[in-house]
Amino acid sequence: MTANTLQSERIHHYLRPKKSFPNVWCAGCGNGIVMGALIRAIDHLGLDKDKVVVVSGIGCSSRMPVYLDFNTLHTTHGRALAFATGVKLAKPNLKVIVITGDGDALAIGGNHFIHACRRNIDITTILIDNKIYGMTGGQFAPTTPEGKIATTAPYGNYEKQFDPVQLAIGSGASYVARGTVYHVAPLERMIIGGIQKKGFALIDTISNCHTYYGRFNKEGDAVAMINDIRKQAVSVKAAATMSEDKLIGKFLTGVIHETDATEFCDEYQAMCERVLAKGGK
């Protein structure tokens, strides 16, 4: 059975219908697609709900944990990874998943992002990358392409763009993937891979904010935007056979980087054992 066909009843098993719905998202927002993928990934892995902690910052994307029936920590803007680091080191047996936006993770939270990667702490981070600040009404983000319109870039963005995938690889994350809200089945597999990986996993998830980004840049409604995402996405495998010209205006998807670096909590534990073996010296 592909995870896609998960029965709606089964989905409800992972939601908190009573108090948190209806959700705050615009109809057609990619956030809901990512939430579905996350639920199916967790269901596929058969994780114990009591042992899953979902942590987020502030933003439209970061609202997700509130809807999920796990241990959920909706924190301050940009700081989700720092909170999550505390949870994970305190109780390494918990599965810690972070939901963050591109502004949350890469602007205000950039420092925590690179250090979480560097420590290679066992946290799975789903970065919902919609190229804009949704929650606050469409200001430019560190991921906004040059020339694009945002409320704080009314004449076109003239700042350079961050590539979260390269940033994570350069900072030491051991599992780095890029998915999209169109390619849902691969996204689920990447989330599964990220959760299974012992170490820091980033799943940069290209998503749509039609309400602001789409409207300001005349990129159409949710369907049009997701269709464009489909056209721009090239899997790592396919890209290997394509010429450089053909790759202009495209982005790579799939598991882009994977290594077997040692994990932070394991290293801490090993250090403690060494110290104790030497009688605390």
Binding site: V55, A82, F83, A84, G86, V87, H112, H115
Partner: peptide
């Protein structure tokens, strides 16, 4: 558990996370 965080914003965040983890 001891951790040197990347700054004091993160330090405060980490202890709140750890406290909620018990």
């Amino acid at each position: 558990k001891f951790i040197q965080m990347e700054d004091e914003i993160a330090s405060m965040a980490s202890i709140i996370g750890a406290s909620n983890a018990g």
